[in-house]
């Protein structure tokens, strides 16, 4: 499904909690479609966006569908560049162990599971963001 072989760097910046608004869910839908177009996709989680990746989300009580397991499937779509803003975790009293583990399988190394998560400072994230062709924030 690539467009005449053009591959651009797309970054999706997630800054909001899941469930309170629909942005996290509908952002994920765009991310999956972008991967289907064989584009170079990265995801950034910053500010309240880090809550999207929390383990143990239980949504029965709010009557909404729990879509948190979709993040674990990103590796199957060859999305393996996930950047998490460390300062946003620190500000919220969270650590990386509060978040889901996200992995991808490396075909070249007998499908060894490798982590997709990169814990980065804001300065690093800023640099990565400025190297993108298309940045979308929901």
């Amino acid at each position: 499904m690539s467009e005449e072989g053009i591959v651009k760097k797309f970054m999706y910046v997630n800054r909001k909690c899941p469930y309170g608004t629909i942005y996290a869910l509908e952002s994920l839908e765009v991310v999956l479609i972008t991967a289907a177009f064989d584009q170079d996709v990265s995801l950034a989680f910053t500010d309240d966006g880090v809550y999207q990746l929390m383990k143990d989300q239980k949504t029965d009580g709010i009557g909404m569908k729990n879509f948190s397991s979709t993040y674990a499937a990103l590796g199957d779509y060859e999305i393996k560049k996930i950047f998490i803003d460390k300062e946003s975790l620190d500000e919220r009293g969270l650590s990386i162990s509060d978040l889901q583990e996200l992995v991808w399988e490396d075909e070249d190394e007998d499908y060894a599971e490798k982590s997709s998560i990169n814990l980065v400072s804001r300065a690093e994230l800023s640099k990565i963001m400025s190297q993108q062709d298309v940045v979308m924030s929901f």
Partner: peptide, 16 residues
């Protein structure tokens, strides 16, 4: 949604 991704690919800038 592919139309959005296509716009990202084909346009010189995407503004949200």
């Amino acid at each position: 949604l592919g139309q959005l991704v296509e716009a990202g690919i084909q346009a010189d800038r995407l503004i949200t």
